[in-house]
Amino acid sequence: MKLEWSVVWQYRWLLAEGVLVTIGLTIVTMAIAVPGGIILALMRLSKNRFLSGFSLCFVELFRNIPLILVVYWAFYVMPIFVGIELSAFATGITALALNVSAYNAETFRAGINSIRQGQVQAGLALGMSRFQVLREIVLPQAFRRIMPILASTWVSLFKDTSLVSVIAVGDLAHNALMVRSQTFRVLEMLTAMALIYWALGYPQAKLADWIRKKFEVKE
């Protein structure tokens, strides 16, 4: 078997573009799913039964469905329900954001619940509004518990973006698989793809470990 590693170099720009799309998918999804998760968590904790019920259903639904299925579902079903034809990128973002928002909602809810009720009362006793108590007292303290989990969600998300390749979003996995089928350099391209993901993901995983150690709650 003769290996032609030059094929990787030849398609370097296409792979680089894929890397950029993968990183873009990760960043944009997180930028949506953090506020999304906070809103869902607050809905869940609210006294309004409709809001908390909706949040519960949303979170349980998207945590219990394979992401790849959500991607297909968003691709086929959303244009008909919503009525607008979204780009593949936007469709991919939607599917990822639905999934990650559900996970973040649980992260934020657990973080908020970990703060003693007395802390809330101390803030209220100073005359703060519920929103001020959340912003000034609860969230900054919950941050220590939330950050490590958000970091590991980030690492998972980075990997999960590869699943939107099935609806032809031009991410790293999609571009590498495309080159593979055009050039038939299967081993070279697939190995290159794995190595690029590894090179990008490894430092992120290590960073997530570092964040977990740094924020470890000592009680």
Partner: peptide, 13 residues
């Protein structure tokens, strides 16, 4: 390593 490579990539490889 496994934490940094997508499962899709492992399956395909």
């Amino acid at each position: 390593t496994m934490r940094s490579i997508p499962v899709l990539v492992v399956i395909v490889w």
